[in-house]
Nucleic acid binder design. Structure first.
Length: 537
RNA sequence: GCCCCCGUCGUCUAACGGUUAGGACACCAGACUUUCAAUCUGACAACGAGAGUCCGACUCUCUCCGGGGGUACCA
């Protein structure tokens, strides 16, 4: 019935939530406090939550949401609750659940209450809270805040078309005023009702922590379903009910949920009246993380896949730092920081409202900064699994490595740490150092470095190095020896003199420093590789 | 159609109503250098448009334009 909405819109009433007041208390949302820099006042003890649905593999947008909630909790010395919203049996998977847990653990995002750790407001899996939802739904129905709806979606659409309303008009409120007799008649047909929330005919406003005042016009939100005819509760019910029962007072979530906030607020008001909820939570809607173009980063997009980034060699510090930059800034002149620093400075009220593009190049650059800040041994420890994956090393943990591997990696660490941006690049850097191969097939772009004089250079180098003392096979000595023979006496430019030697030793155009590399692999292997390349020119 | 959000360099962002509009990534040039990195210099590059308020607007208000999201018995 359009008149319902029309009437409401023309009245343009204002409902609670402090529409006009500069501040208010109690069940209504707290509004701007002019003593606090125009910012909304946060609760004394902040309780935030992260409540993903276990569908698909963890994506960066989800991680950013978790990160901001976590940072807000830690900054305010509040409580971070971790709940799983697995009410959609058709899409939820155990694998996804396991991955989300693994992701948070890898990232070092810990929680105070919730899945795995328990707490006073459990269970924290919605699939185990069916009785609670059924009970609340009954109370809502009994109080008249919800009503039985027998209309099928086909019938709703048919009525909309018949009345000349746009197809996307949504539910028309048909079942709002059903009499007992009418309901009985539907039941006699064998139909079962869905439960819908009765939306008030009033404007609905709230003060978003990130966006400021947001107001929805009366009549723009149709009555919505909270329980399916088969009794399954929907997100529209479970989410606010759990937030209420877990005493969540700050709801930080994605912008995609912004337009569902008015109906959430209305349900919350009912829950307060029923004594189920204590107070209206504060809401903050974080901007989208965008992919290429102007589209939201989709789950299909490889750049959204958290574990793919890990496979490439992002370390948690780098990825988290980058993600924090999407919508938040620690200061005008700084963009590299630790999580401790983030916690110290983070305030969700400083988060920007506009969507941010995920820029993989900047993410990698930030990651590189964090890799360089690692202690060398830590860098090595974290690199070993990648080296093992790439068959460069014999085991996947530092302690299980051979002493030879440890010795070489230890010597190589400082040489490669400033040369990689992702841990996945370490293998290519140290592969030639760990190998005993007498010849390494040069990569394509390395072979291009070999000019006409390469043969002469290699011959000369071999001649000089053969006579070098094995005891004095050191970086400095090798540098002097070769510079003297090839540059000073031989007349080659350094580029032409050392290029071929580098290619012979490492097989790559980009490698750790040459003389250090020669020292690490030793005289025999060095000479073998020089000869090897000589034979493959 | 209706509802809602967003709008500073290519990208992420900074800027009590008063700045030559700052930083970072990327890109370009140079220094250093045995390659590549790292490091250091420098260059390029932005307030979507129009009104209004104000002595003064990136900042406040309105309109427009542009982009995005929602309009489910998904979350």
């Amino acid at each position: 019935m359009d008149e319902i909405r029309k009437k409401a819109a023309s009245k343009a009433q204002r409902v609670g939530f402090g529409a006009q007041q500069s501040r208010c208390r109690g069940t209504m949302g707290r509004m701007t406090d002019d003593t606090n820099d125009g910012k909304v006042v946060l609760p004394e003890h902040v309780r935030v939550r992260f409540c993903p649905s276990p569908t698909g593999t963890p994506h960066v947008g989800m991680v950013r949401t978790a990160l901001f909630n976590w940072a807000e909790a830690r900054h305010t010395h509040g409580t971070f609750v971790f709940r799983i919203e697995d009410t959609d049996a058709a899409r939820d998977t155990q694998e996804s659940f396991d991955q989300i847990l693994e992701a948070l653990k890898w990232l070092g995002i810990d929680w105070d209450e919730g899945v795995d750790v328990g707490g006073p407001n459990g269970p924290y899996l919605q699939s185990e809270r069916g009785d609670i939802y059924a009970d609340v739904a009954q109370k809502l129905l009994k109080a008249g805040y919800a009503y039985e709806s027998y209309s099928t979606s086909e019938e709703i659409e048919a009525r909309n078309i018949a009345n000349g309303r746009p197809k996307a008009f949504g539910y028309d409120g048909y079942d709002r005023t059903l009499t007992d007799e009418q309901r009985q008649a539907f039941r006699d047909e064998g139909r079962k009702p869905a439960l819908r929330i009765r939306m008030p005919e009033e404007d609905i406003a709230f003060n978003d922590l990130i966006r400021g005042r947001i107001e929805f016009k009366a009549g723009s939100v149709p009555d919505y379903v909270i329980v399916r005819p088969n009794g399954d509760p929907l997100y529209t019910l479970t989410n606010p009910v759990d937030d209420a029962m877990m005493n969540i007072n700050v709801v930080l979530r994605g912008e995609d949920l912004l337009s569902s906030t008015p109906r959430q607020i209305v349900l919350y008001q009912y829950l307060i009246k029923l004594g189920i909820a204590k107070e209206m939570p504060l809401f903050g809607h974080m901007p989208y993380v965008m992919g290429q173009g102007k589209k939201k980063l989709s789950k299909r997009d490889p750049e959204s896949n958290l574990f793919l980034h890990r496979e490439h060699g992002f370390i948690r510090e780098g990825l988290l730092n980058y993600l924090a930059l999407l919508g938040w800034s620690i200061g005008a002149e700084q963009d590299v920081f630790s999580m401790d620093e983030m916690i110290k400075h983070f305030d969700v009220r400083d988060v920007k409202a506009n969507p941010a593009h995920f820029d993989i190049d900047k993410a990698i650059a930030i990651n590189a900064e964090h890799i360089r800040m690692l202690e060398p041994q830590d860098f090595l420890n974290r690199s070993v699994p990648y080296l093992h994956r790439d068959d460069v090393v014999s085991a996947d943990s530092w302690d299980a490595l051979t002493t030879r591997e440890q010795r070489i990696l230890h010597a190589a660490a400082p040489l490669v740490q400033t040369r990689v941006r992702l841990l996945g690049e370490v293998s290519g850097m140290v592969g030639s150092l760990l190998s005993n191969a007498g010849y390494i097939e040069p990569e394509a772009d390395a072979r291009k470095q070999l000019k006409a004089s390469a043969g002469e250079v290699l011959a000369k180098a071999i001649e000089v190095l053969e006579s070098a003392s094995s005891d004095d096979w050191k970086t400095d000595t090798l540098h002097e020896l070769l510079t003297k023979a090839l540059v000073n006496e031989g007349g080659y430019k350094p580029r032409l003199a050392f290029g071929p030697i580098r290619v012979a030793v490492s097989g790559r155009r980009v490698s750790p420093p040459l003389f250090e590399s020669m020292e690490i692999i030793g005289k025999d292997v060095t000479l073998a590789r020089l000869r090897g390349l000589q034979n493959h020119l």
